[in-house]
């Protein structure tokens, strides 16, 4: 998979020779700022298209041949998001956001209280996202993603608003809950230590300079495989 961005003055070439995610696994992608982590995550989420992809499949479906509508349908069926900004609807309460996400996937809303209790946000369910802290928002976003029981969760820096200790706790909970539902969790983070502690496998972006820009290549970090 190849994606080029930038202008004629400075090009950034993002290359992904190989990327495989086993079922119910926790895969982390790390790299320096501007290495292409978020760009890659957007491509995995079918938000951005690659410039070329030899064999890009999600749940066995070849992505290259899909129309825009089919990509939207596939995203809805297989992928949930935990965005850096939370990704919650401002006009719904936390509870309504989670329930809405569940209904959208045809999932039961009866487990909302249990799930939010496990994440420690049971007391903010009737508040709107704008009225809670960044960390609470991210926990709510995680709850929203988990309630959908999607095969894949894409998480972009989900613990960025938390302190180190809280981030570790959250990661452990997130990973366990996802594994319990059979969900493959793909996370982008700049926190390498956090990644090494919890990831089943880790991919790393490495950057090298080219004639008119840089090339960022994603490779599996063999030191971090479980």
């Amino acid at each position: 998979m190849l994606k080029t961005r930038g202008d004629s003055v400075r090009k950034v070439e993002v290359t992904i020779p190989e990327f495989t995610v086993p079922p119910a696994s926790f895969t982390v992608i790390v790299g320096a700022n501007g290495s292409g982590k978020s760009t890659f995550l957007d491509m995995l989420g079918l938000i951005l298209s690659s410039d070329s992809a030899m064999d890009f499949r999600i749940m066995g479906t070849l992505i290259n041949e899909l129309t825009g509508r089919e990509k939207t349908q596939l995203r809805r069926r297989y992928i949930s998001y935990v965005l850096q900004t939370g990704g919650l609807l401002e006009f719904l309460t936390i509870r309504e956001n989670i329930r809405f996400a569940a209904r959208l996937r045809g999932k039961s809303i009866f487990h909302v209280d249990h799930l939010t209790g496990q994440l420690g946000i049971a007391d903010i369910l009737d508040k709107r996202p704008g009225k809670v802290s960044g960390g609470q928002r991210q926990k709510a976003a995680i709850a929203r993603a988990l309630i959908q029981e999607a095969p894949i969760i894409l998480a972009d820096e989900p613990s960025s608003a938390l302190d180190t200790e809280s981030a570790r706790e959250l990661m452990a909970t997130f990973k366990n809950l996802a594994r319990a539902k059979g969900t493959s969790l793909i996370m982008v983070t700049h926190d390498q230590k956090l990644a090494e502690e919890h990831a089943d496998r880790m991919y790393r972006f490495t950057i090298e300079k080219t004639g008119n820009g840089v090339r960022s290549t994603l490779r599996l970090d063999s030191n971090c495989q479980r």
């Binding site: 995203r75 809805r76 401002e90």
Partner: peptide
């Protein structure tokens, strides 16, 4: 006013 929410809804899979 609702640009962000509408973008999120597309992300959730609403056409």
């Amino acid at each position: 006013r609702k640009r962000k929410d509408i973008a999120y809804l597309q992300l959730y899979g609403l056409h």
